[in-house]
Design a protein around this nucleic acid. Structure first.
Length: 486
RNA sequence: GGCGGCAUAGCCAAGUGGCUAAGGCGACGGUCUGCAAAACCGUUAUUCUCCGGUUCAAAUCCGGAUGCCGCCUCCA
């Protein structure tokens, strides 16, 4: 099966051919570490985590690099705000980044280089660009001359004339062209700096990615990814610098994920409508966020709202409850997974969907179909089916894990869900069990009015009771306030 | 102003030339139940923003209109 990837450079879906057979070199722009990660960072991380997982699943040796930008204007500003050094700012938010990524089950890339560990390489790149005449010095700053690089605008699909017509670029007298961008910035008093042949200063924004990607992957390399907002200027500039310096193409396939909107508006720090991953995790299972993102194609925008997240949380619970039903079946003495052809068909369709530019929305639908298939097999249970059931379950879990879902074992899942949910609703285990007990007694005495009252009370708290032959069980169920009132 | 994208059921969302227009959430009916719930079965878009065109055939291609969004400035 052939993988196709939508390439921002050509605006087309293209058959994917790695440069080296069986090896894929993947670079994704990481974060600038000056704050906690928000839901938008989470989308990018999850999208490329799934790309990484799927490429591994297909048997490729994936050299996946994701950087930290740990020196920049905003970090310096943050340091003075928090009264700590810029290095401490970096350390603090790298730690925060890992907490969030681990919670979201984002796999660690092969290397996670930091900008400040590659200053020497940056200096070398700037020198090369100066030597080749692509860059010029002004008062300790070094600028890249966009007019010298003929393909400037190739990635973001605009010409220099068009960009200037936009005329929102601040005119800086020192630059030859307003669109020229800084490779190296002269440091001001009190700012971090490095000594270089062209002056005391610090790197510009784009250069770290050029340096780290080519250092670990060489160029051209296979896939470069990031959020859509990085196409211009970040990726355009990375490409210009690297191609000008090396005389070789930079990247074969450019992948960009769409934004997360809040109430139809882009989530961004400047608008101030950001929602942190840490806040999300207080109220939801981390996989609900994955499910939410993966239910839309990665290139499309997605609108974040509580209702959608609750829908997704319910959908996630459904998958876990299917696994739970399977776990409760009378175990066979020896499980010999037996092929179940309809399940295999869904498995194949899953791969086909993923091969089509990572169509996770379609791929997910097959996981839900496997879940339904399992439930049906359990409903019509006879002992001989146990082997097929296990086979089907294994397929379902395997596919889910390619998407980074169903990571929890049932115990962990229950424990975490219960903790989070009870806390959010101001309940505790003891009260809950007492209420269930009370209701059971009421039912025994045929006092159904009281029993139903308790049940409704709990339902309002998002706890649903199930009377099974084995006794009363309870589950979490997200009910939106609107629907609850109806 | 320039460039790019989107418009599919109550909501979210796949599908981009031809089998019954995926899947999730929700709603309704059935089985089950004290009644429920869960689970399963069934129903929930004869039609894909609108108007033209191409074609034997279009949600899917082309032209136009309307609406929404993004980039052109730090951003995932």
């Amino acid at each position: 099966m052939a993988l196709k990837i939508y390439n921002t450079l050509t605006l087309k879906k293209e058959a994917f051919k790695p440069i080296e057979k069986n090896v894929i070199k993947l670079y994704v722009c990481g974060v600038t570490v000056y704050g906690h990660c928000h839901i938008g960072h989470a989308r990018s991380a999850i999208v490329f985590d799934v790309v990484y997982r799927y490429l591994l699943e297909k048997g490729y040796n994936v050299i996946f690099i994701k950087n930290f930008t740990d020196i920049d204007d905003k970090i310096i500003r943050r340091a003075s705000e928090e009264g700590i050094s810029w290095k401490e700012v970096g350390e603090k938010y790298i730690k925060s980044f890992y907490e969030d990524m681990d919670a979201l089950h984002v796999l660690r890339p092969v290397h996670e280089p930091r900008a400040t560990e590659h200053i020497e390489d940056m200096v070398r790149l700037v020198e090369t660009l100066l030597e080749k005449g692509y860059a010029y010095k002004v008062n300790g700053n070094v600028y890249f001359s966009v007019e010298r690089y003929k393909k400037y605008g190739e990635l973001s699909k605009r010409t220099l004339e068009e960009m200037l017509a936009g005329a929102r670029v601040e005119i800086d007298e020192r630059k030859k062209n307003p669109l020229d961008f800084a490779l190296w910035k002269a440091s001001k008093e009190g700012e971090p700096f490095w000594e270089t042949p062209f002056g005391t200063g610090r790197p510009g924004w784009h250069i770290e990615c050029s340096v780290m990607s080519t250092k670990y992957l060489n160029n051209p390399f296979d896939i470069h990814g990031g959020g859509k907002d990085l196409i211009f200027p970040h990726h355009e500039n990375e490409k210009a610098q690297t191609e000008a310096a090396t005389g070789k193409p930079f990247v074969n396939y450019w992948m960009h994920n769409g934004f997360v909107n809040m109430e139809k508006e882009k989530m961004s720090k400047s608008i101030g409508n950001i929602f942190l991953i840490k806040d999300f995790l207080k109220n939801h299972h981390p996989e609900a966020l994955r499910l939410f993102f993966l239910s839309t194609h990665y290139r499309n925008p997605i609108d974040y709202n509580e209702q959608s997240l609750e829908d997704m949380h319910n959908a996630l619970l459904r998958l876990y409850y299917t696994l739970e039903r399977v776990s409760k079946l009378q175990p066979a003495k020896i499980i010999k997974p037996k092929r179940h052809i309809p399940a295999d068909e869904l498995f194949n369709r899953f791969y086909k969907a993923m091969d089509d530019d990572f169509n996770t929305a379609l791929a997910l639908s097959y996981i839900f179909e496997l879940s339904k298939m399992l439930n049906r097999m359990i409903d019509e249970y006879d002992e001989s089916a146990i082997h097929s059931i296990h086979y089907t379950q294994n397929l379902m879990v395997r596919l889910a894990r390619i998407l980074g879902l169903l990571n929890d074992d049932l115990q962990t899942f229950h424990h975490n869900e219960t903790q989070r949910h009870l806390e959010a609703k101001g309940l505790d285990m003891e009260t809950l069990e007492k209420m269930i007990h009370e209701r059971t007694d009421a039912r025994k005495n045929k006092n159904f009015k009281k029993a139903d009252g308790i049940r409704n009370l709990l339902l309002e708290k998002g706890i649903m009771l199930l009377d099974t032959p084995a006794g009363t069980e309870w589950r979490i169920k997200y009910i939106s306030p609107m629907k609850g009132e109806e």
